[in-house]
Amino acid sequence: MNHNTPLSPLPLSHLADVQRRVLSSAQLRAHGVSAARTASQCRPGGPWQLLLPGVYLLHPGPPTSEERLHGVLLYAGRPVLPAQGEARSAPGFGEAMITGLAALALYQFSSAPPLLSLDRIDVLVPRTRRLRSTGCARLVRAHGMPRPKEITGVPVAPVPRALADAVTQVADPNAVRRLLTEAVRAGHCEPAAVVKELSRARLLSRPHVVGAVDSLLAEGRALAEERLYELVRTQQLPEPVWNVDLRLPGGPHLGGVDAYWPGQAVALELDTRAPRHGEDAQWSEQARKREHLERLGITVVHLTPKKLRESPEQQATVVRTALMAAVQRDPAAYVVVLPR
């Protein structure tokens, strides 16, 4: 017996019961179909067709979007055959996952083109995978594979990674800006995660990406501020003074804060910064400002956009606790509060 020998002499009609109409050569063998029989089925005018090397479409018509996705994954993934007792139609996607514009379409980005309009589907694979891009499959290699999210049975790269891979292929500045802005506005991810992936992909030096990132950070900042206003209102926190500068009387400027409760000497800052090359000095300045305020007896609360979005009640408790603890502290230094 060799690897082309069918495991059981089943008639081809039994494949009509297979849930997916795209199978790899290994899966066909597991269904009892020999390589010779597969080749016969794929002859001109035959009922099957070769979709990608080693991947077959079990009907003669054009593939659907779902079939193209499954075909690309079967081509790129290491063959994974079902264990004994499992359904023979289990897909063998291995570590492969959809990324780029196709992934964003699966996440239902309105700014991403529909799947059927994409000539090629990006698929993320480990860098050691020895395959080439071919047909509708474009391989994207990764040193470390992220944890995929499953959408309609398809493993999909996380949004930040998918965005970075999409931006690699998109040259239109407006299209890049729309993709990045939608990712934040629709709540798919935070700006910092996107910038991190763009930096990893060495895309931040591209002129059409720089402007899009600036818009992304501005959008993220605006959304975080809206969530902070809503937090104070819905969680019935005392109303602070918003967006103010703090100064010592007749002395130096201490820095700006997003919210300040003068009676309790509690300052709040939204940490909307995203790590970008060359900004270490800015990060150090932020740390020095916080240390200076705390030496003056002012409590500084830092909230991140992600925490505001995912756990607003918990963040309200953090702020409320800081306000309540003010009565137990020594009085803070007097500071002048000015609008920004």
Rank of each mutant, 00 (worst) to 15 (best):
residue 12 L to Y: 02
residue 244 V to P: 11
residue 36 A to M: 06
residue 324 M to I: 12
residue 84 Q to N: 09
residue 41 Q to Y: 10
residue 122 D to R: 03
residue 225 E to I: 03
residue 14 H to M: 05
residue 339 P to G: 03
residue 37 R to I: 13
residue 8 S to F: 14
residue 190 E to P: 02
residue 247 R to H: 15
residue 63 P to S: 09
residue 43 R to P: 08
residue 166 A to E: 06
residue 205 S to W: 08
residue 232 V to E: 03
residue 325 A to C: 04
residue 331 P to L: 00
residue 289 K to G: 07
residue 138 R to D: 03
residue 334 Y to R: 14
residue 251 G to H: 01
residue 274 A to V: 02
residue 112 A to K: 05
residue 18 V to Y: 04
residue 109 F to A: 04
residue 144 G to Y: 13
residue 257 V to R: 01
residue 63 P to G: 09
residue 67 E to S: 11
residue 262 P to V: 08
residue 136 C to K: 06
residue 148 P to C: 06
residue 202 R to Q: 13
residue 135 G to E: 02
residue 307 K to D: 14
residue 60 P to R: 11
residue 274 A to T: 08
residue 238 P to Y: 04
residue 298 I to P: 01
residue 43 R to E: 10
residue 38 T to Q: 12
residue 222 A to I: 01
residue 182 E to H: 05
residue 338 L to R: 15
residue 160 P to Q: 09
residue 68 R to L: 05
residue 210 V to F: 08
residue 265 A to C: 05
residue 19 Q to T: 13
residue 188 H to C: 07
residue 170 V to T: 09
residue 179 L to E: 11
residue 324 M to F: 12
residue 14 H to W: 07
residue 94 G to R: 01
residue 27 Q to A: 14
residue 70 H to N: 10
residue 334 Y to Q: 11
residue 188 H to T: 10
residue 313 E to N: 13
residue 254 L to D: 12
residue 104 L to C: 11
residue 122 D to E: 11
residue 199 S to Q: 14
residue 58 L to A: 05
residue 282 Q to M: 08
residue 87 A to V: 13
residue 339 P to Q: 12
residue 310 E to M: 07
residue 281 A to K: 09
residue 8 S to L: 13
residue 76 A to C: 03
residue 13 S to E: 15
residue 165 D to K: 02
residue 217 L to K: 06
residue 191 P to Y: 09
residue 309 R to A: 12
residue 70 H to T: 09
residue 236 Q to S: 07
residue 106 L to Y: 05
residue 242 W to V: 04
residue 289 K to A: 10
residue 109 F to I: 06
residue 125 V to I: 15
